[in-house]
Amino acid sequence: MTRKMIQMRNLIMVVLIGECGLLFGLYLLLNIPVLLTFSAYALIKNSVIFLIIAYISYILENNHLSVEEALNKDAKNAFLFGGIALIQYDENRNIVWTSDLLKAMNINVVGVKLLEWQPHLASLFDDEDVKVIDIKGKNLRLIIVKKQS
């Protein structure tokens, strides 16, 4: 899930909790029975919305293909054994998917702009074919493969 979607999800959750807190606080201050009814309604409604948002977030986070699912288990093992990591990014250079090797290295960069994560990769988009970078003490060779239309 991209960073903006996570921020939006968190903002919505804060608003839902704040609404319930505000209504219950007003009921405690003013002691008007109608506010208790509104507070209970808001609590039930916001709980349902909260659960729906949590479920959608779970689906989006787990709705990606691994190399094993896209190809087969042998290909996944070959990529891991050979130390081949794949990164897919969109037209804005936001990372949208990473392969199992990066996950095994605890490199979670999905939703991050490629050049924010590794600014010196900009030259790959200009002229260079191969770039060597150091990530967590490992030298990685990077190659940009253009998507064929």
Rank of each mutant, 00 (worst) to 15 (best):
M1N: 14
T2H: 11
T2S: 10
T2K: 12
K4P: 01
K4L: 03
I6L: 04
I6R: 09
M8A: 13
M8G: 05
R9C: 04
R9A: 09
N10T: 07
I12M: 15
V14E: 15
V15I: 14
L16G: 07
I17R: 07
I17E: 06
I17A: 12
E19T: 13
C20E: 06
L22F: 10
L23E: 10
L23A: 09
L23T: 12
L23Q: 10
G25L: 01
G25R: 00
G25Q: 02
L28T: 14
L29Y: 07
L29C: 08
L29A: 11
L30H: 03
L30W: 03
N31H: 12
N31C: 11
N31T: 11
N31F: 07
L36W: 01
L36E: 05
T37R: 04
S39C: 01
S39F: 00
A40H: 07
Y41W: 04
L43A: 14
I44K: 10
K45S: 12
N46I: 00
V48N: 07
V48E: 08
I49Y: 00
I49E: 00
F50K: 05
L51G: 06
I52R: 10
I53E: 02
Y58H: 14
Y58A: 06
Y58C: 07
L60K: 13
E61Y: 01
N62H: 15
N62P: 09
H64M: 03
H64E: 04
L65A: 02
L65Y: 05
L65E: 04
S66Q: 01
S66I: 00
V67W: 00
E68N: 01
E68A: 02
E69R: 01
N72A: 11
K73I: 10
K73Y: 11
N77S: 10
A78C: 09
A78F: 08
F79Y: 13
F81D: 12
F81H: 14
I84D: 04
I84T: 08
L86E: 01
L86G: 00
I87S: 00
Q88F: 13
Y89A: 07
D90M: 00
E91L: 11
R93W: 05
N94E: 08
N94A: 03
I95G: 14
W97R: 15
S99N: 03
D100P: 02
A104H: 15
N106S: 05
N108D: 15
V109P: 02
V109G: 03
V109M: 08
V112R: 10
V112Q: 12
L114C: 10
L115T: 04
E116D: 15
W117M: 12
Q118D: 03
Q118A: 02
Q118K: 06
P119Q: 03
H120E: 15
L121Q: 00
S123Y: 11
L124R: 00
L124E: 01
F125D: 02
D127W: 08
D129H: 10
D129Q: 14
V130P: 05
V130D: 09
V130Q: 11
K131A: 12
K131Q: 14
V132C: 08
V132A: 13
D134M: 09
D134G: 03
I135M: 14
K138V: 06
N139C: 06
L140P: 02
R141E: 08
R141Y: 09
R141S: 11
R141L: 06
R141D: 04
L142C: 14
I144V: 12
I144C: 08
I144Q: 09
K146G: 02
K146M: 04
K147R: 13
K147D: 10
S149E: 10
S149T: 08
S149W: 02
S149D: 06
